[in-house]
Design a protein around this nucleic acid. Structure first.
Lengths: 243, 243
DNA sequence: GAGTGGTCTAGACCACTCA
DNA sequence: GAGTGGTCTAGACCACTCA
C-alpha cells in the first residue's frame, strides 16, 4: 500500500488529487492512456472508492482527466483549440463553423517592441519571434494574425518550415517547443479597416473589422503568446456564456 | 415525503437539482436566505444525504447556491450585473469602465415577430413587450438597445414609469415582476451602421458598430429576455477569459 | 451543546464496453 | 461474462457556527 506524501491536514481526496496530478505532470501516463481503475487506486492507497472518485472528480473538473463509462479514466491532453473555437467563430452562410486555413507570410526574429514586451511581461527589447499570417475560408481571407512569442521558448520554430504543419499553432508549440497553452484572455473590439488591413483582407477601406487581442498562458499562468488579429466583420460571430 | 416530478430516467441527484432550481427560480427563498438543511432535504425527498449533497454540489458549481460550513447553504444571487459588466465594457479615454445612463424612448405591447418568438422559445405571435432605449456616457449615445420580453411575465412594466428607476433593468425585473436573470448567452458581431442606427448613435453612416445579442435566462434555464444592441465601436472593448 | 456542512467508509446495484 | 465507471445508500465522525 502506498502512502500519500502531502500535508496530512488536507483531506484525503485532496491529497490523492495532488499525488495523481504530480504523476501526470511527470508523464507517468501518456496522453490518451488510462490511469488505474478506481478500485485499484482505492486498494493501492487504502481509501474507499468514494474518496478516490472525489479526487478523480477534481481532475476531471480541471480537464486533466476524462472519464469513459465502462472503459476507464484517461489522461486528457488539452484540446485547447476546440475550446478556443467554441467562442471564436466564422460562420458559413448556413451557420456552420469552420477552422480557417493558415497562410504564413512572414517569420521574423527581432527585439520586442514596447507594447509587445509589456503584453508578454518581458523586459524591454527581449528577443521575440513574430509570425504574420492570413487565415482563409474557401480561399477568401477572413483574418490577419500578428503573433508574438518569446524567442527563448520558441526558437525551434525558426528552423522548420511551418507550412508543412496544419493551421493550428498550439499543437506545433507543444510538439516542437514543449510549450502548452492552457488558458487565454481575449479582448474584442471593432474598427474601420485602414488601407493596409483592407488590402490584406480583400475588403474596401473603411468597412468594419473585428480586432481580437489574445494573451495565451501556460498552466503556471506564464504568458506564452500574444496575438492581435484583424478579421472581416461579415460572418464573424463570437459567443459567450455568462453566469 | 415529497415526490420528485421530473423524468424518472434521470438520476435522482439530477432530478433534485432541477427541482431545487425550479423552486429557486420561483423565488421560494430570497437572496441570502438559507435553503433547508441537507438532512431535511434528504428526509423530505426520501434520499440519502450523499445524493442530496451531489444535487447541491451541482447548484454550487453553477453559482446558484453557496455553502457555509456550520451555517447552512444559501441562495446566491448578488452580482449578476457585475459579472455582465465584466465582459461588456465601455471605456473612458483613461481606460476606466462605466455603466451608461439609460433613456427609454419606446415601450410597446405587441405580438412577437417570428425571430423574437424563436429566440425566446415562445409560440409565434405570443404577446411580448418591446423596450427601446439609448444608453449614454457623458451625454453621448453609445448603445441603442432593442429589448423583448414575454408579456405574461413582465406586464407589470407596462403600468409604471420606468424613467423613475435606475439604468439597470434586471433589478427592476426582479422587483416589479419577480423575474430573476441568472445567466445569459451573448453573441458579438460587427457591421457598418445603417442610416437609422447612425442617426440614433450620432455617428456617420457606414462607420463600424458592434452588435450584441443577448438571451437572458432564469435559474430554470427559461428564456426571460432577448435583446439586440448596437453600439459605437469606439471605446468599446469586450474581454473574456478562456480556460 | 445543538445544528450545520465536510469528509470518509463499505458496501449494493446499474449501465456500459469489449472480447 | 468480466471489468469499468455511475448511482445511491446509511451510516460514522469531524470542523465550524452560534446561542
Amino acid at each position: 500500500m502506498t502512502q500519500l506524501s502531502s500535508d496530512d491536514r488536507l483531506p484525503l481526496y485532496q491529497r490523492l488529487r495532488d499525488q495523481l496530478a504530480l504523476q501526470i505532470a511527470d508523464n507517468c501516463w501518456r496522453a490518451g492512456e488510462a490511469i488505474p481503475t478506481e478500485a485499484l487506486l482505492a486498494s493501492e492507497y487504502g481509501l474507499s472508492v468514494g474518496t478516490v472518485r472525489k479526487a478523480i472528480d477534481m481532475l476531471v473538473g480541471e480537464r486533466i482527466l476524462e472519464r469513459q463509462q465502462g472503459r476507464g479514466t484517461f489522461i486528457r491532453r488539452p484540446q485547447f483549440h476546440a475550446s478556443l473555437f467554441r467562442f471564436f467563430r466564422f460562420q458559413t452562410p448556413d451557420g456552420e463553423r469552420q477552422i480557417p486555413q493558415s497562410q504564413i507570410f512572414s517569420v521574423q526574429s527581432l527585439q520586442a517592441p514596447a507594447e509587445v514586451a509589456r503584453a508578454l511581461g518581458l523586459a524591454p527589447a527581449t528577443a521575440v519571434i513574430r509570425l504574420q499570417r492570413l487565415r482563409l475560408l474557401d480561399e477568401q481571407p477572413v483574418l490577419a494574425e500578428d503573433i508574438w512569442l518569446p524567442r527563448e521558448r520558441f526558437k525551434a520554430l525558426l528552423s522548420v518550415d511551418l507550412d508543412t504543419y496544419g493551421p493550428l499553432l498550439y499543437p506545433i508549440y507543444e510538439e516542437l517547443c514543449g510549450q502548452i497553452v492552457a488558458s487565454a484572455d481575449e479582448t474584442l473590439s471593432a474598427e474601420a479597416a485602414d488601407d493596409h488591413r483592407a488590402n490584406l483582407l480583400g475588403i474596401t477601406p473603411g468597412s468594419p473589422v473585428v480586432v481580437i487581442e489574445r494573451l495565451a498562458r501556460n498552466y503556471a499562468g506564464l504568458a506564452l503568446e500574444w496575438r492581435r488579429s484583424h478579421g472581416r466583420a461579415s460572418h464573424f460571430r463570437y459567443s459567450v456564456q455568462i453566469r
